[in-house]
Write a protein that binds this DNA or RNA. Structure first.
Lengths: 194, 194
DNA sequence: TGCCTATCTGGCAGTTAATGCCAGGTAGGC
DNA sequence: GCCTACCTGGCATTAACTGCCAGATAGGCA
């Protein structure tokens, strides 16, 4: 309900984000300090850390919200949709909910070329995976044999592996290829190859 | 050739490593400082950073050497062995070349329970993947269609996803399950499921 | 044996990300 | 117009690193 605060906060977040991404693209992630971003965005370091808990969150911060959307989409697929198709539907939803392709491409380049960012990005994605495993487990039904059932974990991990592979290829080719098609190619190679 | 130096260095590395892993297990990774490790190992902080470039390398440091072994094993498989089987052979080799199971279990617990370590661990494994892709690409033969061929990348990424899943389950169950069998279960769920 | 050189080691200062604390300001309700 | 809640900025501090320099130590060589 506190409209003005929320709006100015939203604007501030957006401005800080734009400043940060611009500086990262210009001079590299490691070479850009928090002090510089704060200075150019006209804000104190202390406040910057209140908006974004870590430097890495300036790049991978909105992953958390996307993960929630992904989980909900997968959960809401009809019961007769297979685990594979449900996950694929989830990722298609995320694709459209994400930033513009140009922005995604810029962020992808940054992430794939900066080890510490890449690590952080993977960490966020591991959270997505952990959230999805019970959802997929429910869709798979009862355990076939005795012992723990690794199927859901394996399927989710594989789907993410293919998404990551497709995204990396897509970024390498400057976004000129169709991401969904690349993903399907990856999954075909894995499931129907040899 | 410089025997004494090398040996004392080797001994120092081992002692630092043991001290660090012990402290990490006792009080957690984040709660243990470099200063404390250096103090208890009887070495200066400055020298500790010369042995191990980062705190994370105290846990995931020897991954680099294992990656080289993995690549060589996969490369040396006979030409008629499929990509999947070649990779599986590589991982079996690594299993036996690793530390004792107890040590691996301890390190696994640490890695899977510490987000930043888990991320760094996967980052190292991404290096393994990048090295393996051309090897697998050669084994797959010519590209079927036009455009880039994502098959090798996808297959390698999937195999690692399954290895990771199996290892996590194995660590969760305190090493009481058969790791190779878990891996096969994961791969079956992915390739032959539904 | 005694020196010389290459390498290792420790201490010290400095940088950067990140956190806690406190004083001061600003928006919105009464 | 005041009061409260929240936000903001500055200061101090910590922890992971890094560069620099002086001192020690091992091994080669005369």
């Amino acid at each position: 309900m506190t409209t003005l605060w929320d709006r100015s906060r939203q604007a501030a977040v957006q401005e800080i984000l734009d400043t940060a991404v611009r500086l990262f693209a210009e001079q590299g992630y490691e070479q850009t300090t928090i002090a510089q971003i704060a200075r150019e965005a006209g804000i104190s370091q202390r406040s910057l850390f209140r908006y974004f808990g870590t430097k890495e969150d300036l790049v991978c911060g909105d992953q958390d919200a996307l993960g929630e959307l992904l989980k909900q989409t997968v959960e809401q697929q009809p019961a007769d949709v297979s685990a594979w198709d449900a996950l694929r539907a989830g990722f298609e939803t995320i694709l459209t909910a994400n930033h513009t392709p140009e922005r995604v491409l810029e962020l992808s380049r940054l992430i794939f070329n900066t080890p510490s960012l890449h690590a952080r990005y993977i960490e966020k994605r591991l959270n997505w995976q952990a959230q999805l495993v019970p959802v997929i487990q429910a869709r798979l039904g009862a355990t076939p044999g005795q012992g723990p059932d690794p199927r859901a974990k394996a399927i989710v991990a594989t789907v993410f592996a293919c998404v990551d592979t497709a995204t990396e290829l897509w970024a390498e080719h400057e976004g000129r290829l169709d991401l969904a098609h690349l993903y399907d190619q990856c999954l075909t190679a894995v499931r129907d190859g040899d």
